[in-house]
């Protein structure tokens, strides 16, 4: 499956005990095409990232929206659960509705005046790969001409509790972010984007050898099979996502990829994921 990428955006904000989460109201207001009330932080992150990616482009009316996230709108879910379990109150309607991941999709669609297909998909420690796979299949089937793909993760204070929820150690760094990619069903010209699936690792290896060039950047996903990741590491100059984006635990692939695409001028960027049971996915982005 070959298509092209048109734009990318990258919002990444490390968070620790001594910092405050930066308010997003002003940034959202200045970036979005219309003002929104009753939106929580997760929705704000989605609005901000998607608007920065699209900027003033005119999108195809059938452009699909795909939001991935490991934890989803966790802040609003916490507030809602406290309302009903701790306080014995009926949740407020907008709190209840915004517990759904899809509410962020709604506001992104409304801001960009899009009425095409619209999905919220999660895969723990692999949400980028899940939404990219779903979007590229739809682009290949030509059910859509463009896809706006985003991965959003929110951090909630106190960060010690946020770590506990995820089973992370006390000293682990945290970050929130919103990373977006605008893709198009178009095989011509530069900025190509290719996804390939392989049942066998050997076939992936052969293919990778045929397309890899010196200067390309490559990363193995955090959940990739260890033996094969070690093998790739011994053959290619593999970057470690965790060095740069370890704080973005659930979706560090999205942070790494968006950051690479925004800074990389020449060569291709490869992301590999899979194991012998799941099969192998290769995503690569040309400059």
């Amino acid at each position: 499956m070959t298509m092209k990428w048109l734009a990318v955006s990258h919002y990444f904000c490390p968070v620790n005990e001594n910092t405050h989460l930066p308010p997003l109201d002003a940034a959202v207001k200045s970036t979005c095409r219309e003002p929104f009330r009753r939106v929580d932080r997760f929705i704000q992150l989605a609005l901000l990232g998607s608007a920065r990616c699209v900027q003033d482009r005119i999108l195809s009316p059938d452009c699909g929206i795909y939001i991935g996230s490991g934890l989803g709108p966790i802040g609003n879910n916490i507030e809602t659960q406290q309302q009903l379990i701790r306080d014995g109150e009926i949740p407020k309607p907008f709190n209840f509705i915004n517990t759904l991941g899809a509410s962020a999709c709604f506001y992104v669609a409304k801001n960009l005046s899009l009425n095409g297909q619209n999905y919220f998909i999660s895969r723990r420690r692999g949400s980028l790969q899940a939404v990219l796979s779903a979007a590229t299949v739809d682009l290949s089937l030509r059910t859509i001409r463009q896809a706006l793909v985003g991965v959003v993760e929110e951090v909630v204070f106190p960060v010690s509790e946020h770590r506990l929820r995820q089973g992370l150690r006390d000293d682990v760094a945290l970050a929130e972010g919103s990373h977006w990619f605008l893709l198009q069903a178009d095989e011509s010209g530069s900025r190509s984007m290719v996804t390939k699936r392989f049942v066998e690792y050997g076939a992936l290896e052969v293919f990778l050898k045929s397309v890899w060039c010196v200067g390309d950047r490559l990363c193995c996903a955090s959940m990739m099979g260890k033996t094969e990741a070690d093998n790739i590491q011994s053959c290619y100059s593999v970057e470690s996502m965790s060095d740069q984006f370890s704080a973005f635990h659930d979706s560090l692939e999205a942070a790494w990829l968006a950051s690479c695409m925004m800074s990389h001028e020449k060569g291709k960027i490869f992301l590999i994921d899979g194991d012998s049971e799941r099969g192998w996915s290769l995503f690569y982005f040309g400059s």
Binding site: G101, A102, A130, S133, E277
Partner: peptide, 16 residues
């Protein structure tokens, strides 16, 4: 042990 896709789109979630 295959790939996992979880959809959270309200009452259309399993349709999606």
């Amino acid at each position: 042990k295959g790939e996992i896709y979880t959809y959270n789109t309200a009452c259309t979630a399993s349709a999606n």
